[in-house]
Design a protein around this nucleic acid. Structure first.
Length: 273
DNA sequence: CGGCCGGATGTT
DNA sequence: AACATCCGGCCG
């Protein structure tokens, strides 16, 4: 089977709903049914919201990455996901206009991994498994990070979801500073990746932030702090006073929780977008 | 330690 | 699509 027919087959198999309005057509993926919203207007152009069965994302044609991918993780879902057989069928997303999407060629021999934003291991069935290999759910990630500490963050969040039973997760890239690299002349290489968690049962929230450079360790920041860096309102339905989740207790070597704004070099960092 | 997992690579 | 191989982390 050629690559082209495989892509055509995939586009037939996938039945996404693309929405442009404020209301999400897949509220089940979001805390309070409300999708994250953009507050940094530089991020707004060429965006598209896509709903899949296991996650939903907002894609940017400027970065050719998701700005976020959102999932609702429950213990039942992860129990089901655990038994899933995985297969790697990465594909350029037919729901994203070709002019603004990532292609397999952009990633080939780039030195970067195709890093899942919504992870494959969270997906409970064949369809969602397949859908999460969309290149619209990928960011160029330093291999050591993707296969190392980021994987650890993902596992830690799955563990948290199993223990708590029910959490909402929003993951995505950051593009900080004025020296953003382009992979394959097209796809923006994120400087960081984040994973934000909201626990509706306990009213707690928090986020991991990991630099996209070899040797980086995860840091823990508040949702409010992350929202400033990301230029997005990640959990619009959640009161800003929600308590912080004690993520350090999840087997992570994240060091002391600290405020990212306090770190030298980041306090004045601006998104180039 | 070995075996498994999850993500990625390359070849056919 | 299947297969071999790699890797780091985790578990018994």
């Amino acid at each position: 089977m050629t690559l082209l027919t495989r892509i055509l087959l995939l586009s037939l198999l996938l039945a996404p709903s693309v929405v442009t309005a404020e209301e999400s057509s897949c509220p089940e993926h979001f805390a309070g049914g409300q999708a994250p919203s953009i507050t940094n207007l530089k991020l707004s152009p060429q965006t598209r919201d896509v709903c899949y069965s296991g996650y939903a994302f907002k894609h940017s044609g400027l970065t050719r990455t998701p700005l976020y991918s959102a999932e609702h993780l429950t213990s039942a879902r992860l129990l089901q996901a655990k038994g899933m057989r995985r297969h790697s069928t990465f594909f350029p997303d037919p729901n994203i206009p070709a002019a603004g999407r990532a292609e397999l060629s952009h990633y080939a021999h780039s030195g970067y991994d195709r890093g899942h934003v919504a992870p494959s291991a969270d997906m409970p069935d064949q369809q969602s498994q397949q859908e999460c290999f969309s290149l619209a759910n990928m960011v160029p990630q330093v291999p050591e990070i993707n296969r190392g500490v980021w994987e650890k963050v993902e596992k830690s969040v799955r563990k948290m979801a199993k223990e708590r039973g029910d959490i909402y997760v929003v993951s995505g890239p950051l593009f900080m500073g004025n020296n953003i690299q382009l992979m394959g002349g097209a796809v923006m290489v994120p400087t960081h990746t984040f994973k934000a968690i909201y626990d509706p049962g306990r009213g707690e929230s928090g986020a991991y932030l990991v630099d996209n450079v070899p040797g980086a360790q995860p840091t823990f920041i508040s949702i409010a702090e992350l929202e400033k860096l990301a230029g997005m309102n990640l959990f619009p339905s959640v009161a800003k006073t929600s308590k912080s989740v004690a993520m350090n207790a999840q087997g992570m070597k994240a060091g002391k929780p600290r405020t990212y704004a306090g770190r030298r070099g980041y306090a004045n960092a601006k998104s180039t977008l």
